[in-house]
């Protein structure tokens, strides 16, 4: 019983971070209609920013303030100069935007490898492995902090999407691009902003993860895979779904690692993906309808 609770808590904390990763991805999915297969790689870049700043003595939570704007800019540039031009290109493959993100992911990974080599880096903080106990269950301090910051970002994102004009334009574009264009929304600009936001959110997740994870160039791929499992699980384009999906994935991984063995941690997500495809195509969105 103790182990189960412990596992669930660990999964929940991780799930909060996954939700943050998933929201960025699902926003992009909703507005652009594409899966961003460079999502995890963007997070990886943010983690290296946190790492570099950490070697200069900056706390990873403060590196958020650098990593998020930087990644926002990176997202904007990618969307503006690499993805949006493709809309006008006449080509046989409809997925060429997705292919492009694959290429971008490869470039990001290799550029980072070029600069930092392949070996593991650690962001060391005084609290990296600190824990506190609550009712007999241990809470990892950085993960708990990360969970609450992730929660705050998620809430802020919702406020932004619902209350601000820009946020409403983003939602309108996600619902019906043509209608949004007719209503006078500059959808080109919206896609650029959305990609920036998605990148900034995943950058936040990266910085929050940095104190508890080892950093290496190839970690992007697995996280891209997680992000898309979350998105599929939540239903393509659904923000609420992404949160549910993130938490579900975090829990499932945690349970899988505890009860099946560590080597099953990664395959659990993929198994969920298959299950969703088989039994709930459309994901949680089908159930929640948002």
């Amino acid at each position: 019983m103790g182990i189960l609770l412990q596992t669930i808590v660990a999964g929940l904390l991780k799930g909060g971070l996954y939700a943050l990763i998933g929201i960025g991805m699902t926003l992009i999915m909703g507005v652009m209609g594409i899966i961003n297969l460079a999502h995890g790689q963007m997070m990886m870049v943010a983690m290296y920013i946190a790492y570099v700043l950490n070697t200069m003595g900056v706390d990873p939570y403060f590196s958020l303030l650098v990593a998020m704007p930087t990644l926002f800019l990176l997202g904007v540039l990618i969307q503006k100069y690499l993805l949006n031009p493709l809309i006008k290109v006449d080509t046989i493959l409809p997925e060429n935007q997705v292919l492009m993100t694959v290429g971008i992911g490869m470039v990001l990974t290799e550029v980072i490898r070029f600069i930092f080599k392949s070996d593991y880096k650690y962001v060391t903080t005084s609290y990296s492995s600190a824990t506190f106990f609550l009712g007999g269950i241990s809470f990892n301090v950085p993960l708990t902090i990360a969970f609450f910051i992730a929660l705050a970002f998620t809430a802020a994102m919702f406020w932004f999407l619902i209350k601000t004009d820009l946020g409403r334009s983003i939602r309108a574009t996600a619902q019906d691009k043509d209608a949004a264009t007719l209503m006078g929304i500059n959808t080109g600009r919206i896609t650029v902003v959305t990609m920036g936001l998605g990148a900034a959110l995943v950058a936040a997740a990266g910085c929050l993860l940095a104190p508890v994870y080892y950093i290496f160039p190839d970690l992007g791929g697995p996280f891209t895979a997680k992000a898309f499992v979350i998105t599929i699980l939540g239903g393509l384009g659904s923000t609420v779904g992404a949160i549910l999906g993130g938490i579900t994935l975090g829990m499932a991984e945690s349970l899988g690692a505890t009860y099946l063995g560590m080597e099953y941690e990664d395959i659990v997500g993929l198994a969920i993906f298959v299950a969703v495809l088989l039994f709930l195509p459309g994901g949680f969105k089908r159930l929640t309808k948002v």
């Binding site: 493709l86 080509t91 292919l99 492009m100 290429g103 490869m106 290799e110 550029v111 070029f114």
Partner: peptide, 20 residues
């Protein structure tokens, strides 16, 4: 060590300029 980087750049360039 650059071959994956080159492949990545190639994906980007080919899709942009020679999509077919």
């Amino acid at each position: 060590h650059a071959h994956v980087l080159v492949f990545g750049i190639l994906v980007v360039v080919v899709i942009l300029f020679l999509p077919n």
